[in-house]
Design a protein around this nucleic acid. Structure first.
Lengths: 229, 229
DNA sequence: CGAATCCTTGAGTTCCCTCAAGAGAAGTGG
DNA sequence: CCACTTCTCTTGAGGGAACTCAAGGATTCG
């Protein structure tokens, strides 16, 4: 349908493609819709292709056998996920679940790879895309291994402030505090205590999902703190 | 020199290239040598290109301001590293240091990208390469966030057993126990205690850098253990 | 307005780290 | 080959950050 074609043209991955090229990708893409909280795929599933988000939000996460969750990525419109299974190994390396009502385009592995061979520019864009994800993972590993939780939270708040530039030093969490805990590698109880502690120190003020960054300099210092050797 | 050309042909990334194609990559590659413990690049450095290891070993790692180290990758002959800076962002996302005397080939960013456009097969190989690294990172994040240290160690020992297949359930650490601690996200003291505990439980026997896996089934169970929700 | 979810707060525990010191292994030079 | 330094590893005692368990408040939503 035409609607999807227009949507595809707005996806960064496909920027710069001619209308004709776009049509080829449109021809192999399949639009799919998911309700809030639906599973798109599970860790270890055979990956028959990858996804590009048109609308909504998706979390990519790992689960421990006992059910503890670690969020790896939060993705929104224009982001792609599941590429790993297309280019290597064949199985998805984590779980994917929607955070809201979500529309995606699914690109089947074989058809996409065949098309990719004839579009070196797109291959370079995908290389950049995977590289960005690798870079984000290095930051997440650094966060998990080398920072304490208050420092991880400060880093995340400053990251949000950069994303939501111009909000006058106030950021809005796009996710619940429970999800945020699972993104930062902790649990809601601990996160709640740390919100309280940082508020007590005058670094932030918490009003529901809105966080006022009262002392950006102090937060920067906290974000930079790391564990001892 | 001819020697490097032969070495290039043995690198998985360049498998399947014709002699002529190989010569083009050989033409832009620069061989470099490093002594043991030398820094190849630092976190945040401008990345003018990437590296392929001919001989030796390299660790990629992050440092906290206080000097705590987290190893992200250990690479050996045939492995490449530093690609992230070639395709996105321009700076290296972590530090790289040799573990032994090491020879590498350096491919300058611009020349490599230009060449890559004309070799879609190589682009697909690089996509597979980056995808494998993304998959490994998901495992490492899972390990750091969802497993306790004994479980991380068991996972690593079983991973080594798979790599060093056929050694009759005995593996050899390719790195010092100190490095292993920094790979698993802990410190030598803790690792030493856990080696002791697992030995006491009859799961392993430690003789210097050689570890006998006395109870693979028990180790599998330990490796699968995860933190509670 | 009640149910369900999300969040907060408290008390107790645990895993792992810090600090400190000694034992062992490995490489160096006489 | 042996004393030497140097690096690596082990062991002990103590402390702290974060987790578990439990229950009460606050939102949200039908």
């Amino acid at each position: 349908m035409e609607k999807t074609l227009l949507a595809l043209s707005r996806i960064p991955l496909f920027h710069g493609l001619s209308r004709e090229e776009l049509l080829r990708f449109h021809a192999i893409g399949q639009e799919k819709s998911f309700a809030r909280g639906e599973w798109i795929f599970s860790d270890g599933d055979e990956g028959e292709g990858f996804f590009v988000i048109l609308e909504g939000g998706v979390k990519i996460f790992k689960l421990s056998p006992a059910g503890k969750e670690q969020i790896l990525h939060l993705f929104g419109p224009g982001d792609s996920f599941g590429e790993v299974a297309v280019f290597e190994g064949g199985s998805f390396p984590a779980n994917a679940q929607t955070l809201q009502k979500t529309r995606v385009v699914f690109f089947p592995r074989t058809a996409f790879r065949a098309l990719l061979r004839r579009h070196p520019d797109l291959a370079l864009k995908l290389l950049a895309d995977l590289s960005r994800k690798l870079r984000e993972f290095t930051l997440q590993i650094e966060s998990l291994a080398l920072k304490e939780i208050p420092s991880r939270l400060a880093s995340y708040l400053l990251y949000l402030a950069r994303e939501q530039a111009g909000n006058g030093k106030e950021v809005t969490l796009g996710i619940s505090k429970g999800e945020l805990a699972r993104l930062l590698g902790t649990i809601p109880e601990t996160l709640s205590r740390i919100f309280g502690r940082l508020s007590g120190q005058g670094l932030i003020r918490v009003t529901g999902r809105r966080i006022a960054l009262l002392d950006p300099v102090g937060l920067e210092a906290l974000a930079r703190e790391g564990k001892a050797p």
